[in-house]
Amino acid sequence: MMALRASVFRWVSEDISSKHYLTNRFTLQTQQRSGFRKVAKREEPKKGVAEEAEQNEILHKKGVAPAPDPPTPHVPTRSFGRLVKPLVFTIGFTGCSFGGAAIWQYESLKSRVQGYFNDVKADWLEKKRPQKQGDLGKQVSKWWNSLSDGQKTVTGIIAANALVFCCWRVPSLQRTMLKYFTSDPSSKALCWPMLLSTFSHYSLFHMAANMYVLWSFSSSIVNLMGKEQFMALYLSAGVISTFVSYVSKTAMGRFGPSLGASGAIMTVLAAVCTKMPEAKLAIIFLPMYTFTAGNALKAIVALDTTGLILGWRFFDHAAHLGGALFGIWYIIYGHELVWKNREPLVKLWHDFRTRGRGAGGNGSK
């Protein structure tokens, strides 16, 4: 005879609120509310290990699979071993950037000498040829020629940032953008996002502010270094500042994606301010208040150091600080250690080009 047990249920009116988190560069929070009434379930005593094993054995005999364990949420581990690959990528990419810049400068000087007479001839033909009025190409050429070498150099960087900004607005590209154009030490993709995130902005104001600062300091930094060395410094700074961010996030256990050119721009800003500390700077909205570049650099470093210590999350202060320190180091020590020792590489490239041209000449005879 089976015994029946009666149970009393009490209905309780309650609101059910739940939060759903989307883990990407921008944390989105949505709340859902419901007015359904729910039966309060009676708590049953937890089964022991022996009882659970016995129940699983009975289910196995009946041919029913036991209920699987609920999945555990993925929690990023604070493993510094994951930073070995980004470290190797940072060193290798920095070396390739400066090596490629040295070869680029060699080729530029060589083509400039070889094309001197061609430029003279082109100028002579331009004077003899009747000028077209209202030609759009001519207006663009006139505007381009009015730019400084620094402004011409950073125009390509600004165009790349604008292109990536537009890609963020394409829904079908969201997964790719999140994977490769945001940097996060807990992500599966670790290396290439260190570079690609430097050209990535989701906010129009963020991109406009960064590109304005880069445009403002472009003439000074290119006149100081040349376009080839500047490009090597800028690209390397983006990767190095991201690696510093990786180290900081891993050490503090505060994982999350980052993006933006702020780390590389901080390197440019720090390099110019270190080389010309007495230069006068002003804020665009307050042009009447001026301050020296040296004091501005000290204030920026102090602000990012404070933000890093206190754990502020509005900016990636570790990337800012890493970029600024790299710019200071490069002006004081790096230029002598890296760029002025490029002659052996340039000589190897020159010998390679000479032998290649010689072999081609012999083969054509």
Rank of each mutant, 00 (worst) to 15 (best):
Q114L: 15
A264S: 14
A279F: 04
F285V: 14
A261K: 02
L136T: 09
I157K: 00
T23L: 13
R342W: 03
S203V: 00
M231S: 15
K47H: 06
V272M: 02
A359Y: 04
S203L: 07
A209W: 01
L173R: 03
G226N: 04
S17Y: 12
K188C: 00
K365G: 08
N145V: 02
G361P: 02
R357H: 04
S148Y: 07
G48S: 06
G63Q: 07
T176H: 11
G361N: 11
V247F: 00
N24E: 12
G35T: 13
W349P: 05
G334S: 05
A160T: 13
I332P: 05
S197H: 04
T354R: 06
D304L: 01
T182R: 08
C96V: 15
H20Q: 11
M2A: 13
P76I: 15
G156K: 02
V8G: 00
C167W: 06
M252S: 08
S187M: 05
Y116T: 11
A162D: 00
S108R: 08
E52S: 10
L321T: 08
K128R: 11
A160L: 15
T305M: 11
V39R: 15
K121Q: 15
D135V: 00
I16T: 14
I328R: 13
H350W: 09
N56D: 09
A159Y: 10
I221S: 03
K127R: 11
S248E: 05
C273Y: 10
M266K: 11
Q31A: 06
H206W: 10
I103G: 04
K132P: 01
R10L: 08
H74S: 12
R357I: 05
D135E: 11
Y106H: 06
S97K: 06
L196S: 07
S111P: 03
P45W: 08
W339D: 10
R5K: 12
L259R: 00
S141I: 03
E228P: 10
E44W: 06
L235G: 02
K127F: 06
R37N: 08
D123A: 14
K347C: 02
G360R: 09
A65R: 14
W215G: 06
V113A: 14
L214H: 02
N223I: 01
F315R: 12
V120E: 06
V213L: 10
F291W: 01
P277W: 03
F9M: 08
Y180Q: 09
D119G: 15
W312D: 08
A50W: 01
A293C: 01
L28R: 13
L325M: 14
K275E: 07
K275S: 07
T267V: 03
F80E: 05
V154N: 04
F199H: 01
R112F: 10
V88P: 00
F243T: 04
L337H: 14
V154L: 06
V12W: 10
D135I: 05
T27L: 12
V247H: 02
W168Q: 09
A270N: 05
A65L: 14
A324Y: 03
M1Q: 02
E44Y: 07
V49L: 07
A122E: 12
V213C: 03
I103C: 07
I16L: 13
